[in-house]
Simulated assay, not measured.
Amino acid sequence: MQKIKTALLSYGMSGKVFHAPFLAIHPGFELLGSWERSKKLIQADYPNVKSYPSIEDLLADDVDLVIVNTPVDTHFEYAKKVLLAGKHAVVEKAFTTTVAQAEELASIAKEKGLKLVVFQNRRWDSDFKTVQKILKEGVLGDLVEAEFHFDRYTPLLSPKVHKETVNDGAGILKDLGPHLIDQALCLFGSPKAVFADIRITREHSLVDDWIDLSLIYDDFRVRLKAGFFVREANPAYTLHGKKGSFLKPRGDVQEDDLKLSKIPNLDTWGAESESLQGLLHTEIDGKIVKEKTPTLQGNYYDFFDGVYYAIINNTVEPVTAQDGVKVMKIIEAAIASHAQQKVINL
């Protein structure tokens, strides 16, 4: 199997938890190492890889693919350097800080014939895959409304300075917002308009930490919410159609398992507890059904598998640069909507 030589731009939480484990088990990738600024940690986990002292040293190496997993406000600068150096790139969410930046990166990648992928891993969450299946089966009838939540109870400020200082990439809209927005666009396509409310709720916070976005479609509405003061969680996904409803708690176990240093596999990985199954209450063939629905298996391995074949076979990326542009358009519209207190047409 042809190997794609891959390097990370940081080995903090995202590199250690979300990327390196899958690059290590996938037979199509060779993890070369990571750029490490102060703490030199990657060789403790992967003794045979390199710790690069600078991005220039990393790009000068025989690298095919670079994972841009640095703070959001650096994504554009670093991804542009990676592409101009002739390397394929996977860029963490939020893709960039503006639509213009996202479009420029997409243009560079196209011009150079490179693959540019946005790391929207939550498309491969068990709960989202199950929602996707329910909608595809049409058992709810015509959709009337949907509400997605990414809720936490974390009233204290993050120790990560870049998350709590005022910069173009900080705030929950560009942290958890891209997950919710990308999932909505993946299911329903782009809306015709956006209305948003963005707040600061934590004491001493300098960045937004609560969002309520309404995506306006012709025949239905989608509401996206995230905040840090939800001790008792709402359903992560609530969908109401003209025949019935589906409610699903957030249940994907992958992040928690990865943080415990569990090694991903292709068999049992990403399997939720039965207690977190979604509730389907609808009408099927004239019969009222109210029952728990088995949850599909989640697996971020499938994202990396998609990246591999996109590069090797020149197929479409699992999450394209244009997908990233579309998410950024919603984010920019949300910022404008909040500032002007009005609906923004797209």
Rank of each mutant, 00 (worst) to 15 (best):
Ala44Met: 10
Gln340Thr: 08
Ala236Phe: 08
Gln322Asn: 01
Leu105Gln: 06
Gly278Phe: 03
Ala20Ser: 14
His204Lys: 15
Gly177Lys: 00
Ser275Tyr: 08
His179Asp: 00
Lys287Thr: 08
Asp305Tyr: 12
Trp210Thr: 07
Ala193Trp: 05
Ile108Glu: 02
Glu203Trp: 05
His338Ser: 05
Thr282Glu: 01
Gln341Thr: 11
Val316Leu: 08
Gly244Lys: 00
Asp142Ile: 13
Pro53Met: 03
Pro191Thr: 03
His88Lys: 09
Gly33Glu: 05
Glu56Gln: 15
Pro53Thr: 08
Phe128Ile: 04
Lys342Asp: 12
Thr6Gly: 09
Phe195Thr: 12
Ile42Tyr: 10
Arg152Glu: 14
Leu176His: 11
Val49Tyr: 08
Lys248Leu: 15
Leu215Cys: 06
Gln2Met: 13
Gly306Trp: 03
Glu36Thr: 06
Ser275Cys: 11
Val49Trp: 06
Val307Phe: 06
Arg223Lys: 12
Trp269Arg: 14
Leu247Glu: 04
Thr165Cys: 12
Leu185Thr: 06
Lys112Val: 02
Gly278Thr: 03
Tyr308Leu: 10
Lys115Met: 13
Asp182Val: 06
Tyr46Val: 04
Ile200Thr: 13
Val63Glu: 13
Asp151Thr: 12
Thr320Gln: 06
Ala146Leu: 03
Pro53Asn: 05
Leu173Gly: 00
Leu31Thr: 04
Gly298Asp: 00
Glu255Tyr: 14
Asp127Trp: 03
Ile311Asn: 01
Asn48Ile: 11
Pro178Thr: 04
Asp302Cys: 09
Gly241Phe: 00
Asn345Gly: 13
Cys186Arg: 11
Ala60Tyr: 08
Lys287Asp: 07
Asn314Cys: 10
Ala79Cys: 05
Gln341Gly: 10
Leu215Met: 03
Ile344Asp: 04
Asp267Arg: 14
Lys16Phe: 09
